[in-house]
């Protein structure tokens, strides 16, 4: 299948509803990120890589499964960039274009305890599976 990085980056930008070009590269998103150490690519890198059209590596990276969508980056960004929306758009793009499946219903009984609230499972499926 033909894959055009620039075109995909544009799609991601449109889907995110935010303008990554407003970024001034201060890094406050990554400074705020509670998942920083779990990520191969960090929030500020997501933003600048999408601007550059360098998205293939992002789409392939496990980093997209580590964002907690806690919105600390969105809240603190001085430029109104909303990095979480960009990361989400990358994640949604993998689900739509590649049909990735990071969580299968078959896995669930083994990995959760009986106290896990429904909202955790619904959220995880919404984030991890098309």
């Amino acid at each position: 299948m033909h894959f055009d990085q620039k075109e995909t980056a544009n799609l991601i930008t449109r889907m995110s509803g935010t303008d990554p070009k407003k970024c001034m590269k201060c890094g406050k998103c990554s400074a705020s990120c509670p998942s920083f150490d779990e990520m191969e690519y960090h929030p500020h890198q997501f933003v600048s890589m999408v601007v550059k059209g360098d998205v293939e590596r992002l789409l392939a990276s496990k980093s997209i499964t580590k964002c907690l969508t806690c919105f600390a980056c969105v809240q603190r960004c001085p430029r109104g960039v909303e990095p979480a929306n960009i990361i989400e758009a990358v994640r949604v793009t993998t689900l739509r274009q590649q049909g990735t499946c990071y969580l299968s219903p078959d896995d669930v009984p083994a990995i959760v305890d009986d106290q896990i609230p429904q909202q955790a499972l619904v959220s995880a499926f919404r984030k991890y599976r098309k």
């Binding site: 509670p34 998942s35 779990e38 499964t65 580590k66 907690l68 969508t69 806690c70 600390a72 990071y102 969580l103 669930v108 990995i111 959760v112 896990i116 909202q119 955790a120 499972l121 959220s123 995880a124 984030k127 991890y128």
Partner: peptide, 15 residues
């Protein structure tokens, strides 16, 4: 006001 780990706990309880 810091995140508890949210839904990621399903796949990554360590986080």
């Amino acid at each position: 006001n810091e995140c508890c780990g949210g839904y990621v706990t399903v796949k990554d309880a360590d986080l």
